[in-house]
Amino acid sequence: MTAANAEARSRVRVALVDEHQLLVEGLAARLSGSRSRIDVVAALTSWEALLAHPEFPVDVVVVEYGLEDGVPFDAKLRSLRAANVPAVALSRHGDGPTVHAAVLAGAQAFVAKNESGDELVAAIHDVAAGREHRSLAVQAALDAYANRADPSLGRQELMALQLYAGGRSVHEVAQHMATTDQTAKSYIKRGRRKYRAAGVDLGTKLLLRRHAIREGWIQPD
């Protein structure tokens, strides 16, 4: 084997999928340096574009965990497993529930967007070699999630959170539970407060909805 062939075989062919064009272009430039031993063969903003790309399957796919395209993350990873392609999940959020959900879906590595480019390079090479990759920050998030306190919600608090996470207004939650708007609002606030004490932030409707999907309370759109 020539030195050129050996070098080619040691490089990892990577596809990037993130909804932000500027981000994938920046990552492609960062990862394609000669020292990284990575060839970015596709930098895309949609999942469908990846599956239709002439270079697919690749060695590793780096895919945004929160890609809002109507395709659940676990379904994306099932497609990759069928093609024998490992995945690195990329996310704006590095909290325990998000990391746990991505790993549970089958991601071999998780890299938060506030981590370094070197961390992403290491994750890509690890999963390309058949190894899982856990940075110190990711492992700490997983450990915190595993050791999280039980929020110990009451039945009414749980029901109110589930209904509210499913898209109902406070008034509609109250109607469904045959109570007043103020009482329904109180159930939701108490439930959020108990989750916050247990280390899970559900302070916005987006965070609540993501948690509801992870817990199976509601189905992704």
Rank of each mutant, 00 (worst) to 15 (best):
Y187I: 01
R168I: 06
V58H: 00
R192M: 13
A123N: 01
D18R: 06
R192T: 13
L23E: 15
R37C: 13
A197D: 08
V121E: 10
S46Y: 02
P97L: 10
A174M: 09
G167K: 11
R9H: 08
H171S: 14
D95R: 03
T98L: 08
L77R: 02
V173I: 12
G96P: 03
A137S: 12
L207T: 04
V99E: 01
V71P: 02
Y164V: 07
E55K: 12
L67C: 10
L23V: 15
Y187T: 00
T204F: 06
V63K: 02
R192L: 10
I213V: 15
A102D: 02
A178N: 10
V60K: 02
A4L: 12
I188F: 05
L51F: 00
H176Q: 14
I213F: 11
F73L: 13
V138P: 00
Q156H: 13
V41S: 06
T2H: 12
A6M: 06
T204E: 07
V62L: 02
H100S: 14
Y164P: 02
T98D: 02
A160I: 00
A6Q: 10
S10V: 03
V85S: 09
A6T: 09
R30T: 13
A137N: 04
L77W: 01
V24T: 15
R190D: 07
E64Q: 07
A122H: 06
P220V: 08
Q219P: 00
L50V: 03
D126P: 01
Q139S: 12
A141M: 05
A3T: 12
L27Y: 14
A8N: 10
D118K: 11
W47N: 12
V121M: 05
P86V: 00
A184T: 10
A42V: 08
R196Q: 11
S46T: 15
A87K: 14
P97M: 06
D143K: 07
D18S: 07
K205T: 08
D221G: 12
D126K: 06
Q182P: 02
A178E: 08
F110N: 07
L202K: 04
A144V: 00
R210Y: 06
G94E: 06
A184D: 08
F56E: 04
H125M: 05
R155T: 15
M177H: 11
E157G: 01
P57A: 09
D143P: 03
V17W: 01
P57M: 05
Q175T: 13
H125W: 04
A174I: 12
E19L: 01
H20G: 06
L158P: 00
V200Q: 04
K189D: 07
G154T: 15
Q21K: 14
V14H: 03
E64D: 14
E157P: 03
R78K: 11
R214V: 10
L50R: 00
H53G: 01
F73T: 07
S32T: 15
N5T: 04
P86I: 01
V12W: 02
L77A: 04
L163N: 04
V24D: 13
S116P: 02
L153M: 11
G203F: 05
E19C: 02
L206M: 10
L158Q: 12
V111S: 09
A3Y: 04
G94N: 09
D74V: 13
L44R: 02
P86F: 05
F110C: 12
K113Y: 08
P86S: 06
V173H: 09
L120C: 07
A49Y: 03
K76Q: 10
